Lab assay of single mutants.
Amino acid sequence: MIINNLKLIREKKKISQSELAALLEVSRQTINGIEKNKYNPSLQLALKIAYYLNTPLEDIFQWQ
């Protein structure tokens, strides 16, 4: 199972779901689904999230 800290990191950086979704060219619902662990992002999307949040990938997504 993958645990993610996306919501915590996104809120710490004061970025809304809508703003992050626009940067990543995905829907706000996609961001919401990832934050709620409804599904895991593709590797490409995970890397883009880490890039736009300027945060190491392993700080956002962790195996458990």
Rank of each mutant, 00 (worst) to 15 (best):
I34H: 01
I49C: 06
L57E: 02
L8E: 14
V26F: 02
L6R: 00
N40M: 07
N40D: 12
I49P: 00
L20Q: 00
S27V: 03
K38M: 15
N40Y: 07
G33E: 14
N37E: 07
L23P: 03
E58L: 11
I2Q: 09
T30L: 15
T30H: 10
M1T: 06
E35N: 01
I31Y: 05
K7D: 04
N32R: 15
K12H: 13
K48C: 09
L24A: 10
A46S: 07
I2H: 09
K13V: 07
E19R: 13
P56F: 03
W63Y: 06
K48H: 07
L20W: 01
S27L: 03
L47E: 15
P56R: 10
N32P: 03
K13R: 09
N32V: 15
I3G: 07
K38L: 14
P41Q: 01
R10T: 02
Q44D: 15
A22V: 12
S18M: 15
L20A: 02
L57K: 03
N37H: 10
K7F: 08
A21S: 09
L57A: 04
S18R: 11
R10D: 01
T30K: 09
T30C: 12
I15N: 02
K7P: 05
E35M: 01
S27G: 09
E11Q: 09
I49N: 00
W63I: 05
N4I: 02
N32L: 10
K12Y: 15
G33F: 10
L53P: 00
A21P: 01
Q44N: 08
S18N: 10
L20N: 00
N32T: 11
T55W: 05
I15R: 04
E58G: 13
I15E: 01
S27A: 07
Q64S: 13
A22G: 12
Q44S: 11
P41T: 04
P56K: 08
Y39W: 07
I34M: 05
S16I: 04
N4F: 02
G33N: 14
Y52H: 12
I34T: 02
A46Q: 08
A46T: 05
E25C: 10
L6S: 03
K13S: 10
A21E: 03
K14T: 06
A46W: 05
I60G: 01
K14H: 14
L47T: 15
Y52R: 06
I49L: 07
I31F: 03
E35Y: 02
Q44P: 11
I60V: 10
Y51C: 08
I9P: 01
G33A: 12
S42Y: 04
Y39D: 06
N40P: 10
K38F: 12
E19P: 02
K36Y: 10
T30P: 01
I31G: 00
S16H: 06
N37I: 03
E35R: 01
L45S: 03
Q29K: 13
E25Q: 13
I31T: 01
K36V: 11
I9Y: 12
P56A: 08
Y52M: 11
G33S: 11
N54L: 05
N40S: 14
